[in-house]
Design a protein around this nucleic acid. Structure first.
Lengths: 130, 130
DNA sequence: AGCGTAGATATAGAGGAGTATACCGGCGTG
DNA sequence: CACGCCGGTATACTCCTCTATATCTACGCT
């Protein structure tokens, strides 16, 4: 049995180790489309619920409510009830949420620039399989 | 009816417009935990199926297969069958996938550094609701 | 009183993604 | 031969997300 060949394989695995146990639960919470889009909207300045719904054209009432609740639970956005007339709830970004600005902006920009390329790749793949 | 107040609201919406229609379908494909982790592993160098499964400790056989299929469909990774003995399938990153390296690395690093903060926020939130 | 707005909640159903498990096929070794 | 390894598929079940829709409270306007 060639011990050396197997050992070389193991060394490669160790050197490029990935902290799945540490990062996976975090990515599970933040790596989804609505988190990226909501934080991108909230970064420049706070917004109220229905304002968010208008800007995130196509999002459902419940989907937005759920996404905001998760973001609030994770300490990325802050919920504040305004004493305005018709009540009013303002969602603003927290310092922790702001630290996600750069990564999320990069992701948003990537989606903007490489979106067409991605779509073409999908079409090519689907046609090659058909 | 105060027209100016409504107009001011509309102006705010226009100035910070978000291209949901363009970015949402893209983020739907790439913004998920396994895409980030798989591409992070594949960035330095290609890997075979079971190598990936060992590094992504905890991922299911099927989950990895599905994720790789989606990444391949989107043109982010390349699948190549090796004529080695026991067969062998190597997954490598494409130029398009490489353009995601910076954003995904930023996300991975964020998960590493801010993971504990996130966890604490969750605990605090859950306790305040209990 | 009746209507509109703002935020929230509830429900039912569709669909995607994940887990667990078993199986196929080719090839190697004991 | 019987077994394990490698890549992959198939199945069934669960869980989460999204959609669509309806209902609720509180306030203001006409």
């Amino acid at each position: 049995m060639p011990d050396d060949a197997d050992k070389a394989d193991d060394i490669d695995i160790d050197t490029s180790l990935i902290n799945v146990h540490q990062t996976r639960p975090v990515l599970e919470q933040i790596a989804n489309k609505w988190s990226v889009l909501i934080l991108t909207v909230l970064c420049p300045k706070p917004a109220r619920f229905n304002q968010l719904m208008r800007r995130l054209d196509g999002i459902t009432h419940k989907a937005l409510a759920d996404a905001l609740k998760r973001l609030e639970r994770n300490g990325l956005v802050q919920r504040q009830v305004l004493p305005t007339t018709p009540i009013g709830v303002e969602y603003s970004i927290t310092p922790l949420g702001l630290s996600l600005k750069t990564p999320f902006e990069a992701l948003y920009d990537w989606a903007l620039t490489h979106g067409p390329t991605l779509k073409n790749a999908q079409i090519a793949y689907d046609e090659s399989k058909a």
